[in-house]
Design a protein around this nucleic acid. Sequence first.
DNA 1: GGCGCGGATCATAGCGCTACGATTGATAAA
DNA 2: TTTATCAATCGTAGCGCTATGATCCGCGCC
Lengths: 350, 350
Amino acid sequence: MADQIRPEHERPVRRRRKMQSITMADVAELAKVSPSTVSLYLRRPEAVSASAGSAIARAIDKLNYVPNLVAGGLAAASSRAVSIIVPSVRNAFFAETVSAMQAALRRERLQVILGHTEYDEREEEDLVRTALSWAPAAIVLTGLSHSDATRRMLSKTTVPVIEIWELGGPQIDTAIGFHHQQVGAASARHLIQQGRRHLAYLGARMHEDRRARLRCDGFIAAAQEAGVCVDVIQHPAPASAEVGAMLIAEALQQHPSTDGVTCSNDHVALGVLFECERLGLAVPDRLAVVGFGDLSFSAACNPPLTTIRPSGDLIGKEAARLIIEHLAGHETPAHATIDTRFTLLHRRSS
Amino acid sequence: MADQIRPEHERPVRRRRKMQSITMADVAELAKVSPSTVSLYLRRPEAVSASAGSAIARAIDKLNYVPNLVAGGLAAASSRAVSIIVPSVRNAFFAETVSAMQAALRRERLQVILGHTEYDEREEEDLVRTALSWAPAAIVLTGLSHSDATRRMLSKTTVPVIEIWELGGPQIDTAIGFHHQQVGAASARHLIQQGRRHLAYLGARMHEDRRARLRCDGFIAAAQEAGVCVDVIQHPAPASAEVGAMLIAEALQQHPSTDGVTCSNDHVALGVLFECERLGLAVPDRLAVVGFGDLSFSAACNPPLTTIRPSGDLIGKEAARLIIEHLAGHETPAHATIDTRFTLLHRRSS
DNA sequence: GGCGCGGATCATAGCGCTACGATTGATAAA
DNA sequence: TTTATCAATCGTAGCGCTATGATCCGCGCC
């Protein structure tokens, strides 16, 4: 209507900010094909004839064209992004998983969007909400414990959900990881096998770190089953060598006969080794020490640390594999569970 | 035209996959305002009247509406994502920076898209290319050394580029970090001050880790300036306690009079401490040890490790601050440089 | 009453791409 | 020759949102 009343030259010119100068249309023009063909070539090159394909490839190269993934994501109703939500990448375990996943997803041109919960379920809920607003190809969460709202949001979407680093609870869809109770039990049994009769579990930040707590539960259960004395000493601070030193001092003061300890992770165990050295306590003769994580220093300390290796990178690789297969259309069985196991590395600290 | 020829009921129905069921239009309808007002409310609530605002808020709440950031990004020609490219998050330094940045960006509803170069410039180039195709609010790179193509791509865009963890070279735009040569020099001068006269630098993966190399350069320069004997012993594997143990053994074998070493990071230094203990070498009496990084175990080992703390989280916070300010329209001075400094922590290993 | 002003609200035109269905043209079958 | 088949290619309608400029309305002022 306005067009008819108002002469063309008076029509207000609407200028919008553009994202990029070179678009698919430019490539199409140069390659003398339609934009749809360019799009098709980019997504499934084998569906385009060799001649058209090479013309498009040449045009892309010449124009230095970079596809706009945001536009693509909007049109396809799903973006080439995978949202990974972990407690923190400062934690070496999750850093390893994130790193392995990112490497595997990159090959399929999938991006990793990262979020840290800092062990807070409400943070997680918020992160899941924004994650969903990116329409990601998949959402990866840590652990099986989430707020009701998180659970509700995720069960409503069609986005695949993968929970990592924990097994043995109610899962939203697919879970990849291992049973932390089994880890605790394995280390208790190992200590008992080594002739230890008064065990202790030294835990850091157990009020927040659910998985450390599960390992502790498994440890206690196995010790009690074997009829062996067992204590738990804990500290609210995050795992560190300092906390380890404090915990072993406290354990020995409260229960001087303690002869075998398992730590919630190798940082704590390292602190125990340091403190024993300071106290002149022979490891493993007087005290056997078991860690968790097999961190970079664990094989090199004095004495080398017996520990349990959780294969964090396998978790990441498996998660990436499932996501890629799902994207390729392979129907994944609902509620799949992948047990990546763990390995007890018997070294000289026990 | 087709409309006129073909009766309406024969028109092919085009069904497209939708991203989400509840859109801004639904919220607008329920709140009895136009979609633009909802959009405005979401972006600048203060620009909307109180009555309209609360009606919209109620509608959002009732419908459980989640904005679609992909669509928003396309329309606004810039997405609420920040692309962070680091060598690896398995490296505690970068994990700390990424973590700090993510925490700060989250408050402004900005997402972190993560990429790992694994110390490969070609990987970095590829990551930058895909990063750009997300039209991010900013791109954060590690270090000042990049391929020509990377440099070209980044100088052409309008996306703010921040280089972190290195200062003192040609920068693309803004750089946040510190001078690694100064770190090396500071530790050399410290050792000399402690009376050491035969220094060595123990480096892991120096062929790839440019920053470790820079620290080494600074170390050598300062030692030579003081007229003190200095050697470099290196190993191609990534930094670890094992590598540290090997390096110190080699250093002492080649140069038995070595009385002070600086390690490319605290992992290596930890290995040195372990090996000295095994060899019965007194630290610091016979050998002074300085690390880099102030990792979680550094204050707790035997003896506590003298090291240099690089403030990786300050780098992350500053980067996030700049990005947020830029987004708010504050013009940042071009080619800004922020020196986050470092601190030498003199502990008992030297 | 008429006018100007400014805050609040609105209508609309894309942003760049993909999915869908249509079209084309070459080959095979009837 | 006609018809069916198939691979390759194309045209176009959105995907859900934001930026832009227009409109509306109430107020104070001449």
